[in-house]
Structure formats: structure tokens, C-alpha cells
Amino acid sequence: MRPVLEATDISVKLGGVQILSHLSIQIERGERRAIVGPNGAGKTTMFNVLTGVLRPQEGRVALLGRDVTRWDVSRRANCGMGRTFQITNLMHSMTVEENVVLALAASLPVRRDLFRPLASRGLDRPASELLDRWGLGDRRHAPVHALSYGERRELELVLAVAGEPAVLLLDEPAAGLSPTETARVCELVERLPRETSIVLIEHDLDMALALSDTVTVMSEGSIRGTGSADDPAISALVEDVYIGGTAEQEDADVAG
């Protein structure tokens, strides 16, 4: 079967600096893939290329077998790509429910009733159901700014799954969360439909291993290796890129 998401030979240069070089990755249907790598490895940049935020100088991206390299973000989203952001990114002047209604309305066909009240489109019910299912039902009417940080991260996940994407890219969904909140987010990710492919950026190797079948190790803009989560070679590689990165930094500090 062809992969759900495939990037081939991606190179990205930003401000004269090579951020990604000749990177290739394939995600199969229903696969759970973790991406690990030190700060600045280019993980978020790779997500930006996959989702269409960034146009790579070289390489192509294919989604469900179609070449989407020249497609913009919204078109890829409408074709089955969902994502969350490393930095929380919500419609902050609205309530939780209004955020979800917008996420649900995005997958409705383009509409004659664009100038009719959004409330008339009958999305309140599905929004409530979605929130109930994901455990945010009692926060339905809370404005986003009144949510705790953990709840915001949960809402991000709910928004990303509302459109039932074929592939979901999660950029450090548990960053900055307490252990309890992290456990909540892990639980949510585990409950995502099995046929949804998930690509998860995560620094915490334990969490990455718990949530994924395969792990891809990145450093300095390239993929160093991919293997099954229980492969000792992968753990060794992870250790290498993290410690290697630190050693390099120390060298730089000494030199500076």
C-alpha cells in the first residue's frame, strides 16, 4: 500500500542557513511515528514543509498518493492533513465551543449560507458531543483565555481531530505540562482512531516510545535513523544525538 504521507529529498534553506538537507520520510496508514531529536534539529521545520507552511527549495511532498508540493496549507488540510502547533495557537477571543464549531465548519462544503448565522448551521450539538468525548464538555462555555495551559493543549488536539484527518502531525503536544497533564494528553493521543496516522514530535523518549510503533531520530536537519521503538540501536542513536549535541554546544561555549 502506498504511504499516507511521503516526503522525498527535502532541502530547506532559511536566511542562508541549511535547515533541512535531503530529508525523506514515509508514513504508512495507521502508523504511529515519533520524531525525536535535540533542539534545532529541524523537526518543526519538517512539519512546516509537510503541512505547506514552508515551500522547500528541493524535494516533493505527497499526501494520499497525490503530489501536494505546490499546495497551500488549507488545501492540504482539506485533503486530510491535521496538525497541532508547538506553541499553543487557539482562537483566543472565543469560547471553547466556538473554537470547536469553527473546526467542524471547516470541513463543510463551501456554502450558500456563508452570510447566515453560524448558529443556524446546527454545529452546536456535534461540537458538544466532540467536547464530551474528549473530556472538555464542562469547559464548553469557557473563554479560551480562562483555560489552564493543559486544557489549551487538550483543546488543540480536539480541534485537530475535529476534521477527522487521515494523518495528524503533533508538535510536542505535552511541552511544558505537569506529569498529570502529560498523562492526560498521552491518554487522548492513545484514544485517537486507529486508522489515523500520527506523527509525533517529542523530546521525552519515554513518552515517544509509549505512544509510537516506530521512532525516527533527527539531528542537524537530517534523519539519522528510523527503527522500531524497542530496537536498542535506536535508543543508542537517541543517546548519541542528544549527548553529541550537548558536547558540540559545550565546545562552542568554550570556543566563544
Binding site: T51, V53, D72, V73, S74, A77, N78, G82, R83, F85, N89, L90, M91, H92, S93, M94, E98, V101, L102, A103, A105, A106, S107, L118, L159, A160, A162, G163
Partner: peptide, 19 residues
Amino acid sequence: HVLVGIRDSESRMAALGYR
């Protein structure tokens, strides 16, 4: 409603599929 969403967070609205 979509306009306000875009005002709040354009990148999120694009990621949801809004042009």
C-alpha cells in the same frame, strides 16, 4: 465568525482548512 478566527490565529485557521 471565520474572520474573527483568522484575526485571532491565521495559522490555525489555515491548518483547519480555511482559505
